[in-house]
Design a protein around this nucleic acid. Sequence first.
DNA 1: CCGTGGTTGGATAGCGCTTTCCTCACGATA
DNA 2: TATCGTGAGGAAAGCGCTATCCAACCACGG
Lengths: 362, 362
Amino acid sequence: MTDTRSTPPAGGDAPAATPDRRSPVTLSDVARASGVSLATASRAVNGSARKVRPDLHARVLAAAAQLGYTANGPAQAMARGRTSVLGLVVQDIADPYFSTMAAGVVRGAEQRGLVVTIGTTGRDPAKEAQHVAALRGQRASAVVVVGSRTDDAAVQARLAEEVAAFEASGGRAVLVSQESLPVDTLVVENEQGAEALARALTERGHERFAVLAGPPGLLTARDRLAGFRAGAAAGGGRVVDDLVLHGDFTRDGGHAAMHRLLDAGFDRGCVLAVNDVMAVGAMAALRERGVDLPGAVAVAGFDDISTLRDVTPALTTVRLPLQEIGERAVELLLDEEGGGPRTVRVRGEVVLRASTPDLRRG
Amino acid sequence: MTDTRSTPPAGGDAPAATPDRRSPVTLSDVARASGVSLATASRAVNGSARKVRPDLHARVLAAAAQLGYTANGPAQAMARGRTSVLGLVVQDIADPYFSTMAAGVVRGAEQRGLVVTIGTTGRDPAKEAQHVAALRGQRASAVVVVGSRTDDAAVQARLAEEVAAFEASGGRAVLVSQESLPVDTLVVENEQGAEALARALTERGHERFAVLAGPPGLLTARDRLAGFRAGAAAGGGRVVDDLVLHGDFTRDGGHAAMHRLLDAGFDRGCVLAVNDVMAVGAMAALRERGVDLPGAVAVAGFDDISTLRDVTPALTTVRLPLQEIGERAVELLLDEEGGGPRTVRVRGEVVLRASTPDLRRG
DNA sequence: CCGTGGTTGGATAGCGCTTTCCTCACGATA
DNA sequence: TATCGTGAGGAAAGCGCTATCCAACCACGG
């Protein structure tokens, strides 16, 4: 009981690939079975700068395979001082905006042999910092925070602090859509995209705009609104202040806000919902109220969520390369850093569809 | 250079909460700072069966907070022999079916202090076993495989083997939608749901059915088809064999299959797409071809993906409590097991909407 | 006043792996 | 043939934490 724990099958041929009970086959077992030292076994099995003589190398690998050896992750992480975990923090993984981006991150990470852990904030920005802190404890090697971008300074400061601590501890961090922190950041050009959308809409003859604007404190929503306003003005149209309603950044938020808009007497014009999910909710509300869509009221969204492309009428929106954003975030993470924090800007592309007909040509 | 690494601030007051460089503050530092042994510090900070005298307890906690101590996850995992990781394996996290379920899993896991890692197979069933193996190496304490359910026996056997090895190594496993393996399983009653759907449709006067059936080897799709067939027959309708087309389990798969169906001369009847995403693709195809929907061709889907509820005409489908399934999977994982593998069955609920009008009443 | 449980700190042995060092063998150069 | 440089295996020192075992120490009862 005091010696080397359960001894592996000592005889000539060990039971092959039979996952015995509590799989205690360690590197030592492999080393012993192949008659080399622990160090050599480690070098052969898990790679190292040092080379191992070919015959020994093969012998060790054979033994490992035959014993069904699997490296103990935590032990490796401990010895190396770092795991190969990439922590992804999002608001809600069920939201297609985040899940599409997550798919990109997962894809990039798996290619590079990283494991992705996912943390959700349930749209509470304060939880972002908590997750980053936890990730630091886990010795994650990287973290991607798809930011909520609030205007709550204390919350932002806390996040900045945690991210700094994370990086100080040797990890790499990338924020998506948050430009105000001194960290590598992937900025989605919401304002520019919204402006371009508004211009395109005015070119189609739309002039009077209402906006379903999302939560007041959410910078993403705010940027989109600001850009849209600017674009509308530039194109000769205008966003009517009384017709800017706030609501949740969700389908139901858009649905409710649209109802309120209709209640307020709005019955003609173009509505921007600051994301596609809200736009879909808004369209549902319009149908429920029997409003002619897109005849009387036109609707535009933002994001170009792929599963939402097939609504009727097809939704005008700004396409964001969500999956690509996820992949780029991983690239950014793994690239060697030159100097200070880098910023990568991603633009959206206006996609005009049937939900905002061309009024000029009919 | 040969002694105890970077020594912590020795003076009276250490710099508070300043995340110094590579955050090397360990439990030993905390113990030293609070003048107790490592063992006591461990007991105070990270809990244990053993009690610590209140004043010491407080002292240790204070020191930990002041030093900004965060437990080293891998080290804990190593000492305990197990991590607090729950591995989730899905096909594609961007697919709302999986991301909704993932949201449930994440929710359940976070409540219980588990970290969720996510692995994707890209719809390659063979990768499931690989992920489970990797998770075993990571000493994950639990794994949820949202199964693809192929009919490839070798692949299934491999998965069964890996899951067995995983459980043998002390972890807990739950499969979603896979009944054939000796593991705790959450079975989605696809066949029953499809049958109920078909019956409901025949009651509405539909008689002639085509099916967009997904990949041939996919048991989920096959079960839905079988159930639908049975239900149609029972209700006095029939699934026309020539009108059962296979295609990818995706929007584009449904889109392409619908086009083929139309090419084959189908222009009247009811189409079942074996999931909502395919149904949406099919509806897009129908619109492209100018087919009267739902007048000439009615469409039904399966899953009731929430973001797809607002298509026009609203989609008849079978509602699956996806998020709840995820949460239940976590429950199942953590429940103490009684005897052998348990099976939990989840039923779908038919939701009739405008895409399949009632032919009897007009 | 001493024996006897019951507590609670402390010392310490690992957990499985990576990674210095150290050593040895071999071939090349003088 | 003697010396040095190089390449590769092996011994062993941790990585930071948990958990086991011991030793104090307390409050009792006899």
